[in-house]
Design a protein around this nucleic acid. Structure first.
Length: 430
RNA sequence: GUGAUUGUAGCUCAGUUGGUUAGAGCGCCAGGUUGUGGCCCUGGAGGUCGGGGGUUCGAGUCCCCUCAUUCACCCCA
C-alpha cells in the first residue's frame, strides 16, 4: 500500500483511458463548431456568493455540497465551482459580451467539484461538457441546445437514452402555482418527510420530483403545474417540442420534472441512460432567463443551456462496448541497441529519425536486446531498427517489420524513406 | 450525513474447525537462443495479510477500534 492515496472521490485517468477521453472530446469539439458554439474556460473557483445567488441557497448543492474556503483570514470566501453556468454567466456579464454581439453561444469541457459521498457514476471531482446560449429567447434557441446535445450522443453511438422534458412556465405562472401547490399540500404537512417539509416553505415545486414513494402518493393528487401556465408558456413549449419532433428526436413530456437548481424557467429537460446504475442522469438543462438579473444585471437575459456528465458518458459508452477496438497507436520504429557501448551513436540516429518526423523509441534503461524487442512488441512498434557496431561500421542497417516478421537492410537514408512511406499504412495507426 | 459491503503480491483471487518458512493464475525480470519480439520451457524478484489494540501457547483466520474501498439512500452530472 502506498503511503499517499488519491483524494476521496477523485480519479486518475491513465493513458489507456485517455484515448477514450480524447475521442469523446474531439466529437464534442467538432459538433460544437458545426452548431456554432465557441469554447470558453473560466476559473475553477469563484466567490462563494456567486453560487449562493445563482444556484439557490435552498438547494442541496449550496446547502451541503460545496468546497468553500477563505484564502485570507477574515477575507471573502471562495468555492470550487460545483457547476458551470454561474461562472459562464458571470464572465459574460463582467466582459459585457452581449454588447459586442447580442447572441453568444459558448461551450465548455470543465472540472467540477461537489462534496458528496462517492458512488458509481458520482465523484467529488468530475467533469461536464455543456453549452450556454445567451441572448436569445426563441423556442429555436432552446431546441438548438437540445438538438446539439442529442447529436453528440448520437455521434458517439449511444443508445438506450430517454429524454424527459417539461415547462416550468414564467415567473408569474410559477408564483400562482406555488401558492396552489402549498394550499394542496398544507393538510398533508405532517405526512411530509423532513426534506419535503423544508421545501414546503422555500421551494415546494421540488417536492414534485421526490423519489420517496410516500411523497409520490401525496403528489399524485396535487394540482398540475401545466394547468397554471399562461398561453405564452404553452405556445413556447409547443414550438420547442415541434422543433424536436421535426429533427426526429424522441422525448417524453414529464410534468413532474422540476430539477434541482433554482434558476430554471420555461423549458427544463433531462436525459437518462439505461446503461448507468442508480445515478442514471446523463445530462440536463433548461432555460434560465432570470439568472442574469439574479446576478445583478439591469435586466433579464434570455438564456438556455445544458450540462452532460463526462464520466457518466464514458461509463455508458464503455458499458455499450463503444470503445472495443480502441488501441494506443504505437511508435513507427524502435531502435534496438545490441551492445550498450554504441548507445550514444544509436541515440543520435534516434534524434535524426525524429527530426524526419518519424515516431521513434529507444530503450533508456540499458536492458538486454531481448528485453528491448519485447518492449517494442508490447508498444506495438511497427518496425525495429538494429544499431550495433557492425551497422555503424558498414552503414547498412537491418530494418525488421515486426508485424510481417520480414527484414531487409538499408542505408540510413533508405530507412527514412521506408519508414516515411509506411507511416500512412502503419497497421497500428488509425 | 445514513445504511450495507469489501480490504491477502503490480492485477484477479485462493487460504479448510485458529497450527510450521502465506499460495495460484496473469503481469514483471532473467535464462534457454555468443546480436532478433510474439508462442513454449526453466528460474527469479515481489507481501508490515489496510493500520492499531486485544483474546490465545499460537491470529491472514476470533473480538474491539480505526482508516480506506465499493454499492445504495438523500440529491445530482
Amino acid at each position: 500500500m502506498p503511503h499517499y492515496q488519491i483524494v476521496k472521490g477523485a480519479r486518475d485517468i491513465f493513458p489507456d483511458e485517455m484515448i477514450q477521453w480524447k475521442r469523446v472530446e474531439a466529437v464534442i469539439g467538432g459538433l460544437a463548431s458545426i452548431y456554432g458554439f465557441s469554447e470558453i474556460r473560466t476559473p475553477v473557483f469563484e466567490y462563494t456568493e456567486l453560487f449562493q445567488r445563482s444556484i439557490g441557497a435552498s438547494t442541496d448543492i449550496v446547502g451541503k455540497e460545496m468546497f468553500s474556503f477563505q484564502p485570507e483570514p477574515g477575507g471573502r470566501s471562495i468555492t470550487l465551482r460545483p457547476e458551470m453556468t454561474a461562472g459562464v454567466m458571470r464572465a459574460a456579464l463582467q466582459k459585457n459580451l452581449l454588447a459586442s454581439s447580442p447572441v453568444q453561444k459558448l461551450y465548455y469541457i470543465s472540472e467540477l467539484f461537489r462534496k458528496e459521498r462517492p458512488q458509481a457514476g458520482r465523484q467529488r471531482q468530475f467533469s461536464q461538457f455543456g453549452a450556454e446560449l445567451l441572448g436569445a429567447a426563441s423556442p429555436a434557441a432552446v431546441a438548438e441546445v437540445i438538438i446539439f446535445m442529442m447529436h453528440v450522443f448520437e455521434s458517439l453511438g449511444l443508445s438506450g437514452l430517454r429524454l424527459r422534458i417539461n415547462t416550468l412556465g414564467n415567473k408569474t405562472d410559477r408564483q400562482r402555482y406555488r401558492e396552489a401547490l402549498r394550499a394542496y399540500l398544507a393538510p398533508y404537512y405532517r405526512q411530509l418527510d423532513d426534506a419535503s417539509k423544508e421545501r414546503f416553505e422555500k421551494n415546494p415545486l421540488r417536492i414534485l420530483d421526490s423519489k420517496n414513494p410516500d411523497m409520490q402518493d401525496i403528489v399524485a393528487g396535487a394540482p398540475k403545474l401545466h394547468d397554471y401556465l399562461g398561453g405564452e408558456a404553452l405556445d413556447d413549449f409547443e414550438k420547442v417540442l415541434a422543433y424536436l419532433s421535426d429533427r426526429g428526436i424522441d422525448f417524453q413530456i414529464d410534468h413532474l420534472l422540476v430539477r434541482g437548481l433554482d434558476y430554471y424557467s420555461y423549458t427544463a429537460f433531462e436525459v437518462t441512460s439505461s446503461a448507468l446504475g442508480a445515478q442514471d442522469a446523463l445530462g440536463g438543462g433548461g432555460r434560465y432567463d432570470s439568472l442574469a438579473l439574479e446576478l445583478g444585471n439591469a435586466s433579464e437575459i434570455p438564456a438556455a443551456g445544458f450540462a452532460v456528465g463526462m464520466e457518466r458518458l464514458l461509463i455508458a459508452m464503455q458499458k455499450q462496448g463503444l470503445f472495443s477496438q480502441q488501441e494506443a497507436p504505437g511508435p513507427a520504429v524502435a531502435v534496438i541497441v545490441p551492445q550498450q557501448e554504441y548507445f550514444d551513436r544509436a541515440f543520435g540516429i534516434v534524434n535524426l529519425l525524429r527530426r524526419s518526423g518519424i515516431s521513434t523509441v529507444i530503450d533508456l534503461a540499458g536492458r538486454s536486446m531481448k528485453a528491448q524487442l519485447r518492449e517494442a512488441n508490447r508498444m506495438h512498434a511497427s518496425w525495429a531498427l538494429f544499431v550495433g557496431g557492425e551497422e555503424l561500421a558498414t552503414g547498412q542497417y537491418p530494418l525488421k517489420n515486426l508485424v510481417a516478421s520480414t527484414q531487409e537492410t538499408h542505408t540510413l537514408d533508405g530507412v527514412v524513406d521506408v519508414l516515411r512511406q509506411s507511416a500512412s499504412v502503419n497497421p497500428h495507426c488509425g
